[in-house]
Design a protein around this nucleic acid. Sequence first.
DNA 1: ATTTAATGTAACTATTCTTGTTACACACTC
DNA 2: GAGTGTGTAACAAGAATAGTTACATTAAAT
Lengths: 152, 152
Amino acid sequence: MASNSRLAIAIHTAGMLAFGEEMPITSTMIAKSVNTNPVVIRRIIGSLVKHGLVEVKMGTGGGSKLAKPASNISIAEIYLALEEGEIFHVPDLEESHGCPVAKLVRPVLKEIFGDAEDGLIAKLRHKTLQHVIDELRMELPADFCLKKLSNG
Amino acid sequence: MASNSRLAIAIHTAGMLAFGEEMPITSTMIAKSVNTNPVVIRRIIGSLVKHGLVEVKMGTGGGSKLAKPASNISIAEIYLALEEGEIFHVPDLEESHGCPVAKLVRPVLKEIFGDAEDGLIAKLRHKTLQHVIDELRMELPADFCLKKLSNG
DNA sequence: ATTTAATGTAACTATTCTTGTTACACACTC
DNA sequence: GAGTGTGTAACAAGAATAGTTACATTAAAT
């Protein structure tokens, strides 16, 4: 893959929103923290909004915040919200393809890959966003990062 | 496709070797079945050989065959043999990065992603290559595809 | 020995995906 | 109305995957 860092950015983003509690956080603030462009953040937040994980307020003083408690958001939800394609791809064969077995193997592979992804998602379901935040809080005072960002 | 189809090709390849029993199958035959280039197949077979799943004989009448019974090869082994990178990527931050929380989140994310991939591999461990073949054999006579390929 | 058929591998191209960037319309606060 | 923020389209850049060509090497067959 042109390696998939969207999930990492999405979790980082959601984590910042959780730190921010009710205060709306702007895409620019998050972009600075992740070291990327605000539009990249907005695109990801758009997916999170679409799936009811985040709320956005437009205009001056606007920004994003979590739509529900961090303890109620699993990493699986974030993963699924991104609507990434399948992890493993089964290449297409031309219609004119000679070998019928090659065609029959496709559904078998799809089933295997589906199962595998289910296993992955099951693991992600066990971790909540709160989990992630707690691990961070153990190392730093809660609002450290946000103060930094607000001060420029 | 920039999406990952190597695993699909690897399973397809290993499946053909299993069908072929002791008879060595050439990369060209497999490439025809998968509808790709022989070099692509050889690269994948190289990985399988490196991990003891396949044996190769060079020269005229050469080709590949399984190094052990299909019932003794899990899809997880094939997946791991390919030595693909991590499924999810945690983007790097510059040294000069201002926000310390952003740095602390990286190991947390890596742990989550590691767990997730473990879940995926665990699922793949439950399916063997024999499994795949059995599902195919239910639909076609065993040597159908190989005959086709041999006859051009 | 020579021919033939296979692999191994390097080097390059093509394609496609992801990410980054710019630009601008729209929304909201003051 | 000025300022600040989002949403989104369109494009540019960068990176990874896949495909191709070319050739050295190995081994069987005649």
